[in-house]
Amino acid sequence: MRRLLLLALLLLAACKPKTGEPLDAKVRFVPEHPSVGKAEICIEVDPDLELAKIEVVGDMTHAGMIPVEAEAHPAGPGLWRVEDFDFNMRGDWVITITAYDKSGKKYQKEVRLTVP
């Protein structure tokens, strides 16, 4: 029994976990390669997708780092923007964009970048 459990665990572990519903979006940074300090994040989504809200969270890849959170504002059809996103440390960042449509359905996209 113990062996079976271990085998099941190994098999399950062989595939990395997946994230939720994917968000089809183009993400740009201004400047294109941000350095430590403030930067703008532009998120382009399909204008037909009626979104109510977009949250942007920046995490560093080391445990223990407090995330940087921001809310994007609509800036035209299908365009959302965070003006002053604070890249407060050098290193690898994971930007998680979570969008909610009017019915409350959640979409997510992850972008990785290195702040030199």
Partner: peptide, 23 residues
């Protein structure tokens, strides 16, 4: 840590495996 490391979100600051072990 095994459970979250294998099946949780693969983001170090938001996973019990990395936070409990490395911090």
């Amino acid at each position: 840590a095994l459970y979250d490391g294998f099946f949780g979100r693969q983001l170090a600051p938001k996973n019990f495996a990395t936070v409990s072990v490395w911090l």
